[in-house]
Amino acid sequence: MTKPQRILVFQQKGSGEPKIAGLRKYGEGLYRIDVFSIDEPLPPVLDDTRPYLPEVIEADLVLDYLKHPDLSEDLAKRCAALRIPVVASGKKVKVPGVYIPVTCCGLGRPGRLGLYEERFGAPEVDVVLENGCIQKVVVRRGAPCGATWEAAKKIEGWSVEDAAVRYGLEVQYFCVADPSGWDPLYGKSPVHFAGHMHKRAMAKALERLGVIAEEAESENSEPDRHLCV
């Protein structure tokens, strides 16, 4: 039996709750999740974060859903000193051992994150087809917020021509990233980036079956509704 990976989640005022719920729902019992919450009001600048962070950090992996940049910076440095890897999606922290994808579903497989990276990160899906339509979507890896799995249910019954674009759209409805953010490197908001990642994952799944889905100009455009009957 696989030993559960110890994951310590840091959040502020419930900022990580949707992803904590997703980890527990879709983690298949692979993780022991502990949560450290900071709920009190904080000043814009924290010269000393020690009163707010735990004295001892023990985990195989830390997930940073904190909002205050000073907390994230000092947490990253402490974890680096302890050789504990950190996933801090959307952050600008530049500390060795800290992984900062644009969104949680933009995380690759760096090889240091243990069981977490096997189940969560950039989406990987397989599909079962019947008569040119999506019969079932099997999620092998996805976003910790659960959007990958929830959106997969919504495209069952769609034609292969529309499946990739539709998947990207459905994911945006479930994504919990801040839609007001904008990443100049990718030219997308985090929500649109998530849609793009899932559109690409579906296209790859179809390509493995020898099916090339028609490309739409944008994953934000609504395809005609082609459902199997």
Score class of each variant (00 low, 15 high):
2 T>V: 12
4 P>H: 05
5 Q>M: 15
9 V>T: 10
10 F>K: 09
10 F>L: 09
11 Q>L: 05
12 Q>W: 01
13 K>F: 00
14 G>C: 12
16 G>P: 02
17 E>G: 02
18 P>W: 04
19 K>N: 15
20 I>C: 04
20 I>Y: 01
23 L>S: 06
23 L>R: 03
26 Y>E: 02
31 Y>L: 13
34 D>Y: 00
39 D>P: 07
41 P>Q: 07
41 P>G: 06
42 L>H: 13
44 P>D: 13
44 P>G: 09
45 V>A: 14
47 D>W: 13
49 T>E: 10
51 P>N: 10
53 L>F: 00
60 D>G: 07
61 L>N: 05
62 V>I: 13
62 V>Q: 03
64 D>G: 07
64 D>M: 04
65 Y>C: 05
66 L>N: 10
66 L>S: 10
68 H>C: 08
69 P>E: 11
72 S>A: 15
73 E>Q: 14
73 E>Y: 13
80 A>E: 13
81 A>Q: 15
87 V>C: 06
88 A>G: 11
89 S>Y: 15
93 V>E: 14
97 G>M: 05
98 V>T: 14
101 P>L: 03
101 P>T: 09
102 V>F: 11
103 T>R: 11
104 C>K: 08
105 C>T: 00
106 G>V: 06
107 L>G: 02
107 L>H: 01
107 L>M: 05
108 G>M: 03
108 G>F: 04
112 R>N: 10
112 R>K: 13
113 L>D: 03
113 L>S: 02
115 L>W: 06
116 Y>H: 04
116 Y>G: 04
121 G>K: 00
123 P>A: 07
124 E>M: 11
125 V>Q: 05
127 V>S: 05
127 V>K: 00
128 V>G: 05
131 N>S: 11
131 N>F: 07
132 G>T: 02
135 Q>N: 08
135 Q>R: 15
138 V>P: 07
143 A>L: 01
144 P>A: 03
145 C>I: 04
148 T>F: 00
149 W>K: 01
149 W>A: 02
151 A>R: 03
152 A>C: 06
152 A>R: 01
153 K>G: 05
154 K>F: 08
155 I>Q: 07
156 E>Y: 11
160 V>E: 03
163 A>I: 01
164 A>Q: 00
164 A>S: 15
165 V>Y: 01
165 V>H: 01
166 R>F: 08
167 Y>F: 15
168 G>Y: 01
169 L>R: 15
170 E>V: 05
170 E>A: 13
172 Q>P: 07
174 F>P: 02
174 F>K: 02
175 C>V: 06
175 C>S: 08
176 V>M: 09
177 A>D: 14
178 D>P: 06
179 P>D: 12
181 G>A: 10
183 D>C: 11
184 P>E: 10
184 P>R: 10
186 Y>M: 03
186 Y>N: 11
188 K>V: 09
188 K>M: 14
189 S>V: 03
190 P>A: 07
193 F>E: 09
194 A>Y: 04
195 G>C: 03
197 M>F: 12
197 M>H: 12
199 K>H: 10
201 A>L: 08
201 A>H: 01
202 M>N: 08
202 M>H: 04
203 A>F: 04
205 A>F: 06
205 A>I: 02
207 E>V: 09
210 G>R: 12
211 V>I: 12
217 E>M: 11
218 S>I: 07
218 S>T: 12
222 E>F: 13
222 E>L: 14
223 P>F: 05
223 P>H: 03
224 D>S: 12
225 R>K: 12
228 C>E: 11
228 C>V: 11
